[in-house]
């Protein structure tokens, strides 16, 4: 018997407390590190290891339970709702930084140059984008001359757009393979998606390197640098996470998990990957292009 009709309710769970302790140690360590304490880095690594241990253990447990057929359709619906609303919360998180970009570009930077404020406080400041603010007029940060080169849209950023869009296609191709029961197509599509994902991250790392070493563009480059690195940085982090999730899905596909009618893990990973894709399109338009 491998079909449960009742809703599956585990009677105890040890992974949540392990994960919480790991995250707690990691964040307390990070805070200590920021305050210059020497125990910070050690705590961070320890907490991270515990957290990774939790992720590995919890997800292994979930996938085994799924393979044993302990989840009925109703449980599957709960998982789908969970993933859907988690992605919505991520959308809200990104919209904060998009909002900050919109507000500064369209409202607060022009206000800095306008009227009495501009005249009295920092004469000569022009409200153009990209800007690192009026600090250099006052002899402040980041560089004495305030020079930096903005990141262009049609170089690496455009290449990365193509890469990420292609990965969306390969991901869907893999899904079609899964639905049609074509194992080869599923695995090849996933391999392509993961490779493209990590390729994207690699190019972005190269872009950051260029920005810091050649272009004078850093987190300290005023509001342009702040919004540029925070938006692309958080996105890049999400691409990494998405690629790791897809790697585990690839591993499970290779082990023969998933059926055409039951493959929540694949769906969740694919939703997440498409979400990351859409965020990038927003980034390409609002951060690089306009």
């Amino acid at each position: 018997m491998s079909t449960h009709n009742a809703y599956y309710i585990p009677h105890k769970a040890t992974w949540p407390i392990i994960g919480t302790v790991g995250l707690f140690i990691m964040l307390a360590g990070f805070a200590n590190f920021l305050n210059g304490s020497s125990i910070g880095p050690g705590m961070m690594i320890l907490g991270l290891l515990v957290f990774i241990f939790m992720l590995a253990g919890w997800f292994t447990l979930q996938s085994l339970e799924s393979e044993y057929g302990m989840y009925n359709t109703q449980v599957g619906i709960s998982y789908r709702m969970g993933m859907m609303w988690f992605i919505f919360s991520e959308v809200m998180f990104f919209s904060v930084f998009f909002g900050a970009l919109w507000y500064t570009r369209n409202l607060s930077v022009p206000w800095l140059a306008e009227g009495v404020t501009g005249e009295m406080l920092h004469k000569g400041f022009e409200a153009v984008w990209p800007t690192n603010g009026p600090a250099h007029l006052l002899g402040g940060k980041p560089t004495p001359d305030g020079e930096f080169e903005p990141m262009g849209a049609w170089g690496l950023a455009f290449l990365n757009t193509l890469i990420l869009l292609s990965s969306g296609v390969t991901c869907t191709w893999a899904h079609h393979g899964l639905l049609a029961g074509k194992r080869q197509q599923l695995i090849q599509g996933l391999i392509a998606t993961v490779v493209l994902g990590f390729l994207f991250v690699g190019f972005q790392a190269y872009e950051y390197h260029e920005a810091y070493t050649e272009m004078g563009l850093t987190l300290g480059t005023g509001i342009y640098g702040s919004t540029f690195f925070m938006l692309t940085g958080f996105h890049g982090f999400h691409v990494c996470v998405g690629a790791i999730i897809l790697s585990t899905v690839l591993f499970r596909s290779w082990r023969g998990h998933f059926k055409p009618e039951n493959h929540f893990a694949f769906e969740a990973a694919a939703w997440y990957w498409h979400f990351v894709d859409v965020v990038w399109l927003g980034l390409f338009v609002f951060v690089y292009l306009l």
Partner: peptide, 18 residues
């Protein structure tokens, strides 16, 4: 505070009101 950004600092083009 810790990574030199200017979201809420007018000197870098940001805004505390944001």
């Amino acid at each position: 505070r810790f990574f030199d950004t200017s979201f809420f600092d007018a000197a870098g083009g940001g805004d505390p009101v944001l």
